[in-house]
Design a protein around this nucleic acid. Sequence first.
RNA 1: GUCCCUGUCGUCUAGAGGCCUAGGACACCGGGUUUUCAUCCCGGCAACACGGGUUCGAAUCCCGUCGGGGAUGCCA
Length: 482
Amino acid sequence: MSVRTRFAPSPTGFMHVGNLRTALYAYLLAKSQGGRFILRIEDTDQARFVEGAVDVIYQTLARAGLRHDEGPDVGGDYGPYVQSERKGMYSEYAHQLVASGHAYYCFCDKNTDEPAAEDAAPSTGYDGRCSRLSEEEIRRHLEAGAPYVIRQKIDREGVSTYTDLVFGEITIENKVLDDQILLKRDGMPTYNFANVIDDHLMGITHVVRGAEYIPSTPKYNLLYRAFGWEVPQYVHLPLIMGRGEDGQVSKLSKRHGSVSFENLCAEGYLPEAIVNYIALLGWSPKNDREIFSLEELTGIFSVSGLNKAPAVFDYDKLLWMNAEYLKAMTPEEFAAVSLPFAGAVGERFRDRWPLIAALLRQRTGKLDEIPEKIAFFGELPEYGTDFFFNKKSKATPESGKAVLNDLIPVFAGSADWSVEELNRIMSEYAESAGCKLGAVMWPVRIAVSGCMVTPGGPGEIMTILGREESLRRLETARAKLA
RNA sequence: GUCCCUGUCGUCUAGAGGCCUAGGACACCGGGUUUUCAUCCCGGCAACACGGGUUCGAAUCCCGUCGGGGAUGCCA
């Protein structure tokens, strides 16, 4: 049978990287076996409905390159692919379970099973009182139109064991399984129920999801068996952890800040780099290679490379990987991808952007670093004469003054304003003056940029700035040193 | 509290009884190249949580302890 996996996010408005990684592995598992990858929207929690959230899911998947074969937007033979549109089905199946004795009506108030006090021993779940209601009582409640939920009836004797493809055999004592709610008061199914129904109906062969579901999986298995359905294969994924401000690690979530795919992209991390990075968070190709395209990952993915222990999300490594992707781009690609991050200066130097981009490509970790690096092109920053000191180049304000006095007329008289020519002028001067090239370039750099650190050298900067602006800045510096 | 999972450098990991005086990558620290910074080279620091077994031999198997995480929702 061919593999079918699904990604079943809730439309909450953003795509957390942990979720994206789950989607990635589900995609990889299916695609590495020539199977199909399905997108299903789990919007059973109406209170959490967020406008436009489904589009965020489509966009994220598209940008990450995870093309789904079936889903609300692309169709398929197992639709509808949005749970709220399947509402009626769940109710039918739930009542079927009531009829077969695997579930029961519960008329309890929402609060009856909550612990009396916060510091009391945590509740061990619903006490099952409604499962003991007589037929007569049930009928009376129903006829009176009393609101109800449907709960799964669980026999708490013995243990349940199942096999997970990454964690191996898992055994849970049935006494910790509680009579979970299948159908909510509003008629919507809970995640726990809708998941089982849909995974079965959609022919999902491998359920790929976070490890937080490990303890509740026996309850799902009971449901499959109650219906006489085949239990799917399970692939539980180790959780991604984040380090909070207190230094403690915990499940990576909103609490730890902006670790959504969208935010990362907005900071200037490339989608390909993010995908590559998260693929390696909890999975290993079992060799030393680290850079993989999605297609390459598809070719080598195997569940045997999945790790069991939680992994900590590391921005440093992501940043490094992003820089690797940036450096691997062609100058044209980099120019295109960097311009949107360049702000006002980028707009102003649009015609010369390829020149600036060329200087930036080898020294950018993430794209949002760019505005700061190029601000001096737009406006000469304030700087003091102490900037002309540089030990390594043997430069001082005095030497700088001499260099500028000698060089400004030469620059001004040059008909050619190319990088090659400007650099030739400086080299020639250094040679004739018998000093280090750095001693010449340092003051020129300071003069034209007002910065000690710049992308590119003075020749490149002057070319980008143009003759007029360059000479104006050189004069400004000369006046400063006079 | 109870239950489940997990435990190799700070972080991501390789390692599936001898190939391990434990390999790679990020970060960090040195050095070199370079017109600044960076890139790029070269080098360094740094781990098998602990205690018992099993075995000729354990990072690898078993048990316990401790640590970490998760579950315990009419959220998913």
